[in-house]
């Protein structure tokens, strides 16, 4: 599904990723943890192709494509989805408008016919119900006046609608109470079908109680410094990152 080799990336001339390696197979869930400022969000942006995130070295293969050669929207249409850590507002543009365009852009890429308004609405309603968002959220401006938790659930709603093959969730759990956390986790779990893969970026072990990862990686100083299973997350919860013997300057600067 995804193979990252020796990835180096910088933002505004500052090196953030320094030789990151990661390999994800179909259907796997990989959790990425790490101190603030380690480069977790940067990894998500680099993979999705955001402007200003310069790849200086390395290779990324996504389902047989050279990911780094594709435009942002092409990556999306190929099935790469990023749930944002800080979802942005777009006043006056409803969720529905954006998602209808999105879904049909993806379908066109897959040589499928566009959904009719009715077909789309049906899917959109189901997606809203899955994350317990009232249907009126489809009509509201994107993230306009949404609470923190509503924004995160809305990201998952969009993910469900787009049926991506690789989902990158950037701290979809931060700022959520336990109930909301459960809703988000259920939404994600509902999409685990053995084919779809996930990168779950989180600070907290508790999310992984709900979304069981196949692997847990620690990202620090721009690379994966340790890989394990769910037990690694538990250890970090207890002991912090200290046992890894990292230099903590990254955390201090974040």
């Amino acid at each position: 599904m995804l193979t990252i080799k020796n990835l180096h990336a910088s933002v505004e001339q500052k090196n953030i990723l320094n030789g990151l390696n990661l390999s994800i197979k179909q259907g796997e869930v990989h959790a990425i943890m790490g101190p603030n400022g380690a480069g977790k969000s940067t990894l998500g942006y680099v993979l999705s192709g955001r402007d200003g995130y310069q790849v200086t070295d390395g290779e990324v293969d996504f389902q047989g494509n050279n990911l780094l050669e594709l435009d942002v929207e092409q990556r999306a249409r190929h099935g790469l989805f990023l749930a944002f850590q800080y979802p942005v507002e777009i006043p006056g543009v409803s969720n529905m408008e954006l998602m209808k365009e999105s879904v049909n852009a993806v379908r066109q890429h897959r040589a499928e016919t566009p959904l009719t308004a009715a077909e789309f609405l049906k899917k959109a309603k189901a997606a809203c119900q899955q994350v317990q968002l009232p249907l009126e959220f489809l009509k509201r401006g994107i993230n306009e006046g949404f609470s923190g938790g509503e924004k995160k659930r809305n990201e998952i709603m969009q993910m469900i609608l787009l049926e991506p093959s690789l989902c990158i969730l950037d701290e979809s759990d931060s700022g959520l109470d336990v109930d909301a956390l459960q809703i988000v986790a259920n939404g994600v779990n509902s999409q685990r079908d053995g084919k779809r893969s996930f990168i779950v970026i989180t600070h907290y072990q508790r999310l992984l109680d709900f979304i069981e990862p196949d692997f847990v990686h620690i990202l620090a100083n721009g690379k994966i410094v340790k890989t394990g299973d769910a037990a690694l997350a538990k250890q970090i919860e207890k002991e912090g990152y200290a046992f890894l013997g990292l230099d903590n300057s990254a955390e201090a600067s974040a």
Partner: peptide, 22 residues
């Protein structure tokens, strides 16, 4: 970036944002 990450090309994204504004 949000719109493009959801699969829209840049032109469509701008026109959608502008339409929302209007």
């Amino acid at each position: 970036f949000l719109c493009q990450q959801r699969g829209l090309d840049a032109e469509k994204a701008v026109s959608m944002i502008v339409n929302g504004f209007c």
